[in-house]
Design a protein around this nucleic acid. Structure first.
Lengths: 117, 117
DNA sequence: TAGAGTGTGTACTATATAGTATACACTTCA
DNA sequence: TGAAGTGTATACTATATAGTACACACTCTA
């Protein structure tokens, strides 16, 4: 039971219902890996791919890259870089937000985006 | 020129001025690594240690663990876990805050901590 | 002046990561 | 009925990570 593998398989199979180009082989060819490897990834036979491969896969399947990275146990490297530039501020903020309900976070995100911060 | 190594060396040497227990050998013994390894880390001869080792080192040198992890190109795994639980919300928020000046972020952190979010 | 403590050079290693390459059995369809 | 396409099993690999183990030369100091 691999959360990432299951997600990929379901997303791909769903697309495959209407478009033949979403076979294991064709997706693998487009994202630049061997079909046997993608097959193993989907069945959780091996760990999730690298960030770069996940991003190509997300693009091909029209899925959210941050969500797919999260399912793979990773966090986008551009976010990591942002955090690393101001570690204390971001560490404090993220720990503060850890137990905050979704709706409050959503409000915060909107306020930051719209407000005159 | 290793940012992490230089930081460790300077912090340790500073402490060593007044306390003999901050030699390479004694610090290495306390944090559970070989002295030759700590020496190489300080001179940037090898990459930075693992998160667990960095945390023990930060503790021993009384330095901020998040800052030391950042210098090592890492982000604390507890923050990663928090982000991975709500990838879209945190990804949006962090990207929104990327170019925000320090003082604004500081204000935001305080407001989140004190306010009725 | 011997012994304890100092930093460091050299050689090696176990485990994880992120895959490749090839071959196989099965299905579809022209 | 044979060619093309499908998913998958098996075996292998290159590179990075995160160190260990040991020996060496130097410096204090009792």
């Amino acid at each position: 039971m691999s959360a990432f593998g299951d997600f990929v398989r379901e997303a791909r199979e769903a697309l495959r219902q209407t478009e033949a180009r979403f076979s294991v082989r064709q997706v693998a060819a487009r994202i630049g890996v061997q079909p046997s490897y993608l097959s193993k990834v989907e069945r959780g036979d091996v760990g999730p791919p690298s960030e770069a491969t996940i991003l190509r896969l997300a693009e091909d399947l029209s899925e959210d890259p941050d969500v797919m990275l999260a399912l793979a146990g990773k966090v986008s490297s551009d976010l990591l870089e942002t955090i690393r530039k101001r570690p204390r501020l971001f560490a404090d903020l993220i720990r503060e937000l850890r137990d905050m309900p979704d709706r409050a976070m959503l409000r915060l995100v909107r306020e930051v985006r719209d407000g005159d911060w």
